[in-house]
Design a protein around this nucleic acid. Sequence first.
DNA 1: TCTGGGGTCCTAGGACCC
DNA 2: TCTGGGGTCCTAGGACCC
Length: 395
Amino acid sequence: MFLLADCNNFFASCEMVFNPKLEQKPLVILSNNDGMIIARSPKAKALGVQMGDPAYLYKNRADIIMLSANFVLYSDMSQRVMQTLAKFSPDIEIYSIDEAFLELEDRADLDGFCKEIRQTVKQWTGIPVSIGAAPTKTLAKLASEWAKKAGGVFVFRNNEIEERLAQTELKEVWGIGEGLSDRLKRKGIYTALQLIQADDVWIQKQLGVTGFRTVLELRGTPVFELSEEPEKKKSIVCSRSFGQKVTELSLLEEAVASFAARAAEKLRDQMSLTSFLSVFTESGSCHVHIPNATSYTPELITLAKEGVRRLFRQGAEYRKAGVMLGDFTEDRQGDFLTPAKSDKGEAMKVMDAINARYDRPKVQFAAEGIKRPWKSRRSNCSPKFTTSWNELVKV
DNA sequence: TCTGGGGTCCTAGGACCC
DNA sequence: TCTGGGGTCCTAGGACCC
């Protein structure tokens, strides 16, 4: 059986753990730059606040608490939840910041086991989770949604498929988004049950092979396996909206240098080298092939700055920019002109180690800027309760 | 007059996920 | 006036190979 453990209102729940007064209030968490709503507490949902709503819609609502996103806190809390879940099965796939699949043998008391998991996560971390259990990952995803209305746990076996799927709308299904859902509706398919009863060839034609796999899973045939090892990324992006419009080239250079440095950190973290860099703004992009694959921040900063100089137009107002890395390798293909050995890698290791160890100020490159007027707005952010000695929760 | 059959790689765009 | 930041996979079509 596959279990999907899904944290309820995850970002809002993280805030409530350290500030229980928030439990009584409509609470929303804002995206970077405080632009839009990316998480809502139950009370905020009850008021009709939608995911993705722009923040300004609620600016004058004194009853709604709005917090800037505190991703440092959320990812630390996520790790605690995942470590707790891993105690219950060695076969665990961390699917996203707030979801994990577990795979285990079916058992008569599976319902009780799921309740125990839920209880333990709540007690050890403070985070409420919903758990769905089913013979396939796609059905487990559905079950976890039903769990939210069934006391937190829902165990789902093959003999209930028809009955349940008859009441399941297409867009609730993992892998079927709004586009495909609308397309199928126009063909007269409204429920998941109608979909799994359709003709195989027809389904493949409408949904492609990915959609067909989803249908097999809905029928109770496992297709998607648990992937326990996090795959290495094939591309890495770092992009941000600016806190204020940027019109000066020097500031735009600072920003992309800083994005390149963050992307390079992620690249070294998965021990890859990149041979492709792209710089982009709202109005265009500039791609560079890198002959000697690298993860050395200064080289990437240089390329990013060159790229943005080519994109820059005097008089234009820039609201966001980003850097993307791609075409990764693990080994450098040497050439006669590049020294085989250098201390570049060691320098990056030391820098990464210092930055991992200390909260702030971080070691950074001068090119990333000091004052950074382009930084995203984060006007109402909670402390880093669990990761900064200066911001520990006070009791 | 009549003209095959089998591949690969790359890219852009679309769809989806959190 | 104000609206994030990441990722993945698949497909079709073009270009090319023998």
